[in-house]
């Protein structure tokens, strides 16, 4: 792994859930690398395993989940050694030192992520005091500075207020403050704006780009909105049924999509100014049940271009242009 340019590399990751006697194959063989200082987008429909992949990175999984194989290599320092997060004990000291300090996460619903009975100041302070040896006076100063940087007006006063006194967008800013107070190298945002209005969404996403500029944080944005990917990300990975089917830069994916799923995904959203006479492109059928293990390409049942070869195994990723990986038999993939 090239730790100079890559901050996180996920190799052949598999995450499963035990539900009664069934096994849910949530993540099947995810390969992904996040470039240092870049904004990486992960896009896919609901149930494609994008959130579970990100939770596996931080080992924030429910007790019935387990990692069935693969590596999660994380390199906090450029040029330094990479550590394998997948091998760590979920409740261990090491993992806890990374979680919240080196890698931080923002969740979809800020209302559910903040504790209603503590002031927001004390909730941000908790994370800071846990990971760094600072006295409370200095901690408070740092928090107020950060709140001001995040665009919260009157931070000294807001510091002592409770979550219910904040609007949705402001709560999400507080969540970002909790995540950013230890200056993490990697910030994972799992659908950070799905619960917010579009004008607030634009504010929050712009803010995350600013943080990347000022702190050099690498950001992963998980979303189902192709618009957010096109506008705010540098690189994209498209996921389907627990697999990355295509990855590359935003331009490569939108202007030259190779995988049939990506093509359909790019074309099924209306774009302002498009002719109204055309029907939108659709993907027939719906996503299959994740509790049944596939023995061949998961997209084959819905794919217009499926052939006999597609039923015989999984296509390996091939590089169709520099940095643009695609997993499809029709694009030269081998099983």
């Amino acid at each position: 792994m090239d730790t100079q340019n890559t901050i996180l590399q996920i190799d052949h990751l598999k995450t499963r859930f035990k539900v009664g006697k069934k096994t849910v194959y949530a993540v099947n063989d995810v390969n992904l690398s996040v470039a240092r200082g870049h904004v990486q987008g992960i896009v896919g429909e609901s149930g494609c395993g994008k959130s579970v992949t990100m939770r596996t990175v931080l080992q924030l999984l429910s007790p019935n989940a387990y990692i069935a194989g693969g590596d999660i290599l994380f390199a906090p320092e450029p040029g330094g050694d990479a550590i394998d997060l997948a091998k760590m004990d979920r409740y261990g000291e090491e993992m806890r030192a990374i979680r919240g300090q080196k890698i931080a996460m923002i969740f979809q619903n800020p209302m559910a992520s903040l504790n209603p009975v503590y002031t927001i100041g004390s909730q941000i302070m908790e994370n800071l005091l846990l990971h760094e040896k600072v006295d409370k006076e200095e901690a408070k100063k740092r928090i107020i500075n950060l709140l001001a940087e995040l665009g919260i007006p009157e931070p000294e006063q807001r510091y002592n207020e409770y979550p219910h006194q904040f609007s949705g967008g402001m709560k999400q800013r507080v969540m970002i403050a909790i995540a950013m107070i230890c200056n993490p190298g990697l910030l994972i945002a799992d659908e950070p704006t799905t619960a917010l209005d579009v004008t607030i969404q634009a504010q929050i996403l712009r803010l995350m780009l600013e943080l990347r500029e000022h702190h050099g944080t690498s950001v992963i944005i998980v979303t189902h909105n192709m618009g957010i990917i096109a506008e705010y990300c540098d690189d994209v990975a498209v996921m389907y049924m627990g697999r990355v089917v295509e990855s590359g830069t935003v331009r490569q994916i939108f202007q030259n999509p190779q995988h049939p799923y990506t093509r359909a995904l790019v074309r099924c959203v209306p774009v302002p100014g498009m002719p109204k006479t055309n029907d939108l492109e659709t993907i027939s059928g719906s996503t299959p049940d994740a509790s049944i293990a596939f023995d061949h390409c998961e997209f084959e049942p819905r794919c217009k271009f499926a052939t006999e070869a597609c039923r015989k195994g999984f296509p390996q990723a091939v590089e169709c242009e520099p940095g643009h990986m695609v997993s499809c038999f029709a694009r030269g993939g081998q099983s």
């Binding site: 609007s167 967008g169 402001m170 579009v198 004008t199 607030i200 969404q201 634009a202 504010q203 996403l205 712009r206 909105n225 192709m226 618009g227 957010i228 990917i229 096109a230 506008e231 705010y232 935003v250 331009r251 939108f254 202007q255 790019v266 959203v269 774009v271 302002p272």
Partner: peptide
């Protein structure tokens, strides 16, 4: 404010402040 699924789409940048 509405993200358009076209990379490098030319747009006037108007970000509303406040709620």
């Amino acid at each position: 404010a509405i993200p358009i699924p076209v990379p490098d789409a030319k747009k006037d940048e108007v970000v509303l402040s406040g709620d």
